[in-house]
Nucleic acid binder design. Sequence first.
DNA 1: TATGAATGAGGGTTCATTCAT
DNA 2: AATGAATGAACCCTCATTCAT
Lengths: 193, 193, 193, 193
Amino acid sequence: MKDEIANLKRSHILEVAGRHFTETGYDATQISAIAKEAEVSIGTIYGFFENKEGLFSEFINAEMERIFRELQEELATISEPIEKLRAMARKKFEYMTRRTNNIREMLNKNPMFLVQASVAKNCPMEHIYILIASVLEELNQTVPLKNNDFIQMAYNFKALGNGYIERWATDERYEFRDKADEVVDFFIDGIKR
Amino acid sequence: MKDEIANLKRSHILEVAGRHFTETGYDATQISAIAKEAEVSIGTIYGFFENKEGLFSEFINAEMERIFRELQEELATISEPIEKLRAMARKKFEYMTRRTNNIREMLNKNPMFLVQASVAKNCPMEHIYILIASVLEELNQTVPLKNNDFIQMAYNFKALGNGYIERWATDERYEFRDKADEVVDFFIDGIKR
Amino acid sequence: MKDEIANLKRSHILEVAGRHFTETGYDATQISAIAKEAEVSIGTIYGFFENKEGLFSEFINAEMERIFRELQEELATISEPIEKLRAMARKKFEYMTRRTNNIREMLNKNPMFLVQASVAKNCPMEHIYILIASVLEELNQTVPLKNNDFIQMAYNFKALGNGYIERWATDERYEFRDKADEVVDFFIDGIKR
Amino acid sequence: MKDEIANLKRSHILEVAGRHFTETGYDATQISAIAKEAEVSIGTIYGFFENKEGLFSEFINAEMERIFRELQEELATISEPIEKLRAMARKKFEYMTRRTNNIREMLNKNPMFLVQASVAKNCPMEHIYILIASVLEELNQTVPLKNNDFIQMAYNFKALGNGYIERWATDERYEFRDKADEVVDFFIDGIKR
DNA sequence: TATGAATGAGGGTTCATTCAT
DNA sequence: AATGAATGAACCCTCATTCAT
């Protein structure tokens, strides 16, 4: 019971912290601001997390875990591998636009986010890359692929998505939300034999 | 004469600053540390640059300008558009490995670098995207492309390269220096009709 | 209880700060010096006051408020308006000599003090001018005054006092403490019809 | 010849410096800004004046000397002592309004000016007080005065003027330029037997 | 266990002053 | 004599972290 409350509090802090890190950037984020918004004391945060860096790293891990689970659930309802890729691309674009109503500004203030996830300690995105790789392996059964380094292909898939996001971050008039299929088509043509 | 010395000093500061920003990240970089390593006073740095942000922004701009010029020169010696793309990919990978002997650690401490350039004020990478786009337009003459948004394709090209770099940043055993051709092949297959 | 301690600390800082501002002048006063003398940390000061200017402004306000209250209390015990003016002049002179044991040096290092109070944001001396004006209005009942701009007359009253203080600040041999009555006589003759 | 040029340069610097000290306040005035506006080098300023404080002190002295001379000249054309006082009050008010087109703001940013002059090292206003005192002595021949401390009366005269200036500095709607006669009337009534 | 006041090292920036040219 | 680039001490303010209550 007590543990449950503690866990709830922990996730709540993590969520608020995530919002701050994402919108403000790591350095500009203040522990005191997180505490105030999460309506806990600074001491409580330090009770749950070693320090600022630990809080950040836990946030990234939790975020990735969550996305991974959501993705996994959604993919379970789809049978066609190509459709799975489309769903993933769509989810990524959705996430980027929903995450903050001003992702463009966010990327300008804190351009680290896109890459951050992949290189943060312990590579918390690993799970997701493996998930993408497994879809590609599946795809390989029906559509033979040129390159069997599925993990690298997964990186390429993600990177292509970033290309659209970056374009959009630079060019105000650009509409990228409906480009998910374009990403997948481009990608498929790039990998199939 | 005096101007020349001033310019040399300026470039020297910019170079040292660049090393610091790249290796330590923007926030963790200290003006005083740059001053000490560049063997000038703090005041001298503030004589050349408005403030820390101005110094950073000039560093990014100068870097991009330099890369752009080098790229342009190299491309002038190549006639085949596909070979041009290969040269570009090779240059990018070379740059990333040469830039610091520990780019992996750099990306961990400062994951912003890869994206930063594209979204920094005034988009200093614009020139390079336009250069890539012009090569793609050229390519379109001989190899008809599916998508005529050459700028977006340029973003995709760069993004794909990032995919390999990120992979390499995460996986110690990965050798990406010789993957330049793979990037181009993947890319060409993705864009050609 | 906690609030009480905080208030005590606050007043203590204010008092130390006041001593510094008065003796050293605004610009030359260092927050770190106030912190050291008040035996609190710099951060604590910034916890109580927005910034240096805020601290200064609060000091002036508090000082004026205190003087105002003291003055009001004393005037309540006096019935004759002229006697009230005398009391005020005496109080001012007392204040100037008691405030620091070296007001002369203070005025040399920081000549702003005399005027500062009247022009600082929100004119914290306003209360006092109104108090003086009310005494003059009262006086007007028995001794008809030439000029009915009581506020201006209040300024004149204060200014005349300053004349004696300045004289004393310049001339070492000058004894001004017993000139309070002279100020009032001069003033009365200047205003009565 | 060379000396003449040097003297001209010196006065020019002094004039520019004066404008800066008056409008910006001592601390906020930058030597570099004076140098730029005076179109001389920083080094030149340091060739003429010991340091910032020396420059300031010379400015005050020169200013007082100038005002003194102007006043003396004007008074020479007037025979009636009371008219002389009126001329002085008028001159003071004129000076305060002409000096900067925004004396109110100046007093807020740098409230020291009014008092500064009288207490600055070597009391550079002394001459002026003596001049006023001599007029009062003259006045004493025809209008017997209560108090024979003419110097103190001179301080009072100046202080009364300050009262109007301070009033005006605090109250936007106040028009003080035409109050010169009021000051003198008030003063005369205050001093005459 | 939770709180949040207190700490103080540290960083960006300014600017009077110097001195080589 | 004049210049103004260079110096670097000094100052305001921030904020991660601690710890007494």
